[in-house]
Design a protein around this nucleic acid. Structure first.
Lengths: 153, 153
DNA sequence: AAAATTACTGCAAATGATTTGCAATAAGAG
DNA sequence: CTCTTATTGCAAATCATTTGCAGTAATTTT
């Protein structure tokens, strides 16, 4: 959607970095992909277009994006210790993960602000960020499961 | 607080398991510890009382507790990929982590229910759990930082 | 446009957290 | 107290991610 390739190019230029074939490929995949891939998933997708691409390049590119605040990284409970990368730009948003197919859906809420404020008051702390993660079944998996239940009845 | 040692003993008994010295030690530390230790932290504490204890026993014990739903496991953004274990019993509660000292503070809120409901409606999904994590500075670190700022002024 | 500079890549080996196979040990039943 | 077998310590394996290094390819300079 938003042109990650452009934005990244500008930043690279301003810091003496180089726009390589590998980076351009990864940026554009991340940009168009409406998902939250793991490094490995991104690697597999990219590999179909450049069969010599290496996994460490994927990691290096993702870490660079992370430092530039162009992607955010998180570990969902379902994935245990594997990171997922989200190319959505800044705006604070939250996530739902389907415990069945691991699809991630983003959502917004203003209610977190109240939660932050209340926590700060009660604890004399200063809250800078916060995130909500919901788990459950997405529409598709819910439908499938209903189907399965009917069959088994 | 709640007697994890007791509860665990009952469950072990009912499944032909054994209450060993190592387990008793780990259970009681987890039970009294008002923190969210990593496996390594728990290991160091326990080691002071049993110098032959092995890290893999710590992991095995934690996983058993996790399966029994007596501890919950999560990865906070600040820790990257390292897990923290929480011996608090069932009730849904949420976490604040100080990005400076990594202390974890628990809190409650009823607002998450509204967030879940709204998400379900909008997405035809079924949400089973959800968790909120806040990041910022705790009271102590906030105080220290103010102090430091003053000194440096 | 070729040469020079050096950031970036692929590869292989290293790291850090967690897991697992196995032989030795020790709970708990009888 | 003996026997059975769940559990432990140890070392090696695994999984995700990182890093050193020598070769490659973007930019810059000439």
């Amino acid at each position: 959607m938003g042109d990650l390739v452009q934005e990244a190019h500008v930043r690279l230029r301003s810091q003496g970095g180089r726009m390589t074939t590998q980076r351009r490929l990864l940026f554009s995949i991340l940009d168009s992909l409406g998902e939250h891939p793991t490094a490995e998933e991104l690697f597999h997708i990219a590999r179909q277009r450049d069969s010599t691409l290496n996994l460490s390049t994927v990691y290096r590119t993702l870490r660079w994006l992370e430092n530039e605040n162009l992607v955010s990284t998180r570990v969902f409970a379902e994935d245990r210790r594997q990171e997922r990368f989200d190319a959505a730009l800044p705006s604070e948003h939250h996530h739902f993960m389907c415990t069945n197919c691991r699809t991630v859906i983003e959502f917004d809420t203003e209610l977190l602000e109240f939660i932050k404020l209340r926590f700060q008051e009660k604890n004399d702390a200063s809250v800078t960020t916060g995130s909500i993660v919901l788990y459950g079944l997405c529409r598709n998996c819910l439908r499938t499961e209903r189907g399965l239940n009917q069959e088994s009845t």
